[in-house]
Amino acid sequence: MNTLSILYIFLFYVAMIALVAGIINKLLQYKRVPAPLKIAVTPAPLTKPGVVYRFFTEVVLFNSLFRATKWTWIFSFLFHASLLLAFFRHLRYVISPDSFIWPLVNNLVVQSFGHYAGFTMLIGLLGLLARRIFVDRVRYISSPSDYLMLLLILGIAGSGLSIVYVSHTDIVQLKAFIMGLFYFDWQNLPSDTLLLAHVTMVLFLALIFPVSKLLHAPGLFMAPTRYQLDNPREKRHLSEWGAELEKDGRNS
């Protein structure tokens, strides 16, 4: 096996461990910190299915963003939906043809939508970037990392599309490399520049995920303003440290 492949095998494991461990660590931290008070933004659901519905409208439809600004919603929705489609398309590289999921992934619909998604993703990202540059309010709140994050994902989308439309890689060898990572049966990684660029940027994105604003993805489920039930009169809400204060006997 060549040195380059060994390096990337190493990077893959490091990035994936950092991603998974980082997110779990953050979620555990959020879970550990109590929410001492009821702070649901109302109108809020009265039941748990209501909360699920509220998150459905937020996570799938970006409801609040839609109410806030239509342009950001269009670009943001375009980007995230494309990301999802691109993700499905990529499953083909990590699923064995023997698997029962294979037909669900390796079909014309998923594969062709996955292709188009590359372009719509570019449009979404460029729209978000333009907004960040040209709207004075958004420019004011942007840090270098906010631009770089967009550029990084633009790089991933651009290099991915180039592999499809400009210069193909040895896709069979790539799949062998990836499957090898799963089964600890390590194989060589094709060494085309475009593929290496694509993979490197994806690994970097995974690596910084838990220490960046990408935490919005898992973190939004932990916002008490959205997940709390509107039932404070019916059910007494008390945190551990709140209960500790009651040792003064005033609540008895």
């Binding site: 953050k26 931290q29 959020y30 910190v33 109590p34 929410a35 702070i39 963003l65 600004t69 950001t72 943001s76 907004r131 960040r132 709207v135 309010r137 958004v138 709140i141 942007s142 840090s143 906010d146 604003k213 935490l215 919005h216 973190g219 939004l220 932990m222 916002a223 008490p224 303003t225």
Partner: peptide, 14 residues
Amino acid sequence: RSLQVFMDICVKCG
């Protein structure tokens, strides 16, 4: 929890 989560998850979407 609100403070901890809110400090982390803003993406500066505007």
